[in-house]
Amino acid sequence: MLAFINSHSSLNSNKKSFFKRFILPIIALVLGIAFMFPIYILILSSLKTKQGLMTNLLGFPDSQTFSPNNYPDAFDKLKYFQSFFNSLYISVFSVALILLISTMAAWVLVRYKNKASKFIFGVFALSMLVPFQCVMLPLMMVAKSMNLLNPAGLIFMYMGFGVSMTVLMIHGFIKNIPEELEEAAVMDGCNVFQLFFLVVVPLLRVILITAAVLNLMWIWNDFLLPSIVINKAGWQTLPLMTYSFFGTYSTRWDLASAALVMCMAPIVVFYLFSQKYIVSGMTDGAIK
């Protein structure tokens, strides 16, 4: 298929523009539809009654099969408002704290060239290889004995898990900032905190946005860690509520599809507004 396109693109311009204007967009449309099909079918199903899903699974809902109640019902059963804000609260606080402590750590790890800084940086880098399953069970015990449970405990754990990747990213960025700038600020009479917050941090804006987006994505979607740390009713995050919802309503696909659409919506909206940062963050994160 691609061979066909490219070998012709070197031919005369009429044929070339025909390809660019018609054939490529048609292939693109087919691909786009194929990738969107699951979401499309989900949205369609979320508008039908349970009966309608059996008689008319693939078509548009009509007056007989349309159900206006799926969304309100699923909204109630997911305690959507509460779980959405739990997720938001936990993710935002975790990300903010991860960024703060990682920037502090990365800065001194770059600027102090001693054995300790090399060793600590090495441990952060190595720890990225440790899969979550390997720390999960002992961590549950640590959490119980130190009372690191529910939102506060969860946020603390995200800090511990988030620092290694974030320190690595910011470390690489600070290395390329000349130190003279900081020296000049010290000459002008900056103390350590002024130096850090007024001189260093503003220079890191680009990498901080990228790190924020990357951390936000995994914390927002994380299921396993909150499932072992959150045990107080009323603090469930969206993934936790989704899971228990499916435990109860696994056969009610009318409600379940509406629930899935509602849980995906925040991610899609966030993606629309910050696509640039997400894409560049995930590419840089992978390549470095």
Partner: peptide
């Protein structure tokens, strides 16, 4: 400056 990152990392990952 290292302390907060190091402490949370040690409690959550290293131990």
């Amino acid at each position: 400056f290292l302390a907060p990152a190091l402490i949370s990392f040690i409690i959550v990952v290293v131990i």
